[in-house]
C-alpha cells in the first residue's frame, strides 16, 4: 500500500525534480568511476589479441554503446507507453529526455564500428546485419526527435512521439530479422563484426565495466535533461 502511494507521489514533476537531481549526481559520479575502472582494465589489463592486435580495444566502447542504444530505445518506448496509457506528464517527459542520449550512443556505436571494421575487415562500412540495424535505429531515434520538434503543442508532441516510439519498438525485431536475412543473402558468412576476439576474462570485465559506466551515464544525462524539461514546462 505504501509503495503504491510512493509511486504516484513521485509521478508529479514537482516532487520528482529534486529526487532526479540527487540520483543524477550519484549516477554521474558512479559513471566516472566505472569508466575509469573499465578503461584501466581495457588498456592495461586486457592482453593484446592474437588476430586483431590492439585494434580490438575499440570493442570496449563499441559494444557498450551498441547495447545502450538498443536498451535506451526500449526504455524510451516503455515510458512512452506508460505516458499514453496513464496520461502521466512525467512519463512522456522521460521518454523525450532519453531520446538524445540514445541517439548519441547509436552514433557512437556506428562510428566506433566503422573504425573497428577498417583495420579488421578492410572497410569502414560493411553492410553487416548489426551495423545496418544500428543505422536504422539511428533513423528511428532522429525521427522521434524530429516529430516532437515539429509539433508546437506539447501535449500533442508527447502523445504523437509516444505512439511513434511504440510503433518503432514493435518494428525493431522485425527490422533486425529482415536485415539479418538480407545480410546472409548478400554477404555470406565472410564479413561479420559479430565475431569478436575470443574472450579473455579481462576483456569481458572491461566490456561490462564500460557498459555499466554508460548505463549510469545515461541515467544521469536523462534525469538532468528531464529536469530541464520540467523547468521549461512548469
Amino acid at each position: 500500500m505504501s509503495t503504491a502511494i510512493k509511486w504516484y507521489w513521485f509521478a508529479s514533476p514537482q516532487t520528482f525534480y529534486p529526487l532526479a537531481g540527487r540520483i543524477a549526481l550519484a549516477c554521474a559520479v558512479g559513471a566516472a568511476l566505472l569508466a575509469a575502472a573499465g578503461l584501466y582494465v581495457g588498456f592495461f589489463v586486457a592482453p593484446t589479441d592474437a588476430q586483431q592486435g590492439d585494434a580490438y580495444r575499440i570493442i570496449f566502447i563499441h559494444v557498450a554503446a551498441a547495447w545502450m542504444s538498443m536498451f535506451l530505445y526500449v526504455v524510451m518506448a516503455f515510458w512512452a507507453a506508460i505516458g499514453l496509457a496513464f496520461n502521466t506528464r512525467l512519463s512522456a517527459m522521460m521518454a523525450s529526455a532519453i531520446a538524445p542520449t540514445g541517439a548519441m550512443f547509436t552514433f557512437v556505436a556506428l562510428w566506433t564500428g566503422a573504425l573497428w571494421g577498417r583495420p579488421t575487415w578492410g572497410a569502414y562500412w560493411v553492410w553487416d546485419a548489426r551495423l545496418t540495424s544500428e543505422l536504422i535505429l539511428l533513423f528511428l531515434y532522429l525521427g522521434f526527435m524530429a516529430l516532437q520538434a515539429a509539433i508546437d503543442d506539447r501535449r500533442r508532441a508527447d502523445r504523437a512521439g509516444a505512439l511513434l516510439a511504440i510503433v518503432g519498438v514493435v518494428n525493431v525485431p522485425i527490422i533486425y530479422y529482415s536485415v539479418q536475412w538480407w545480410n546472409t543473402l548478400h554477404q555470406g558468412a565472410s564479413v561479420s563484426l559479430t565475431r569478436s576476439p575470443s574472450m579473455a576474462a579481462a576483456m569481458l570485465t572491461g566490456m561490462i565495466l564500460m557498459a555499466l559506466a554508460f548505463w549510469l551515464y545515461s541515467i544521469a544525462a536523462a534525469l538532468a535533461r528531464v529536469r530541464c524539461i520540467i523547468r521549461e514546462r512548469e
Binding site: 593484446t48 592486435g53 590492439d54 585494434a55 575499440i58 566502447i61 563499441h62 562510428w111 573497428w116 583495420p119
Partner: peptide, 13 residues
Amino acid sequence: AMGGYGFYVWGAY
C-alpha cells in the same frame, strides 16, 4: 601507437 592501430583506436575513443 597501439601496435600500429593508433589512428583507429584513438579515432574511435
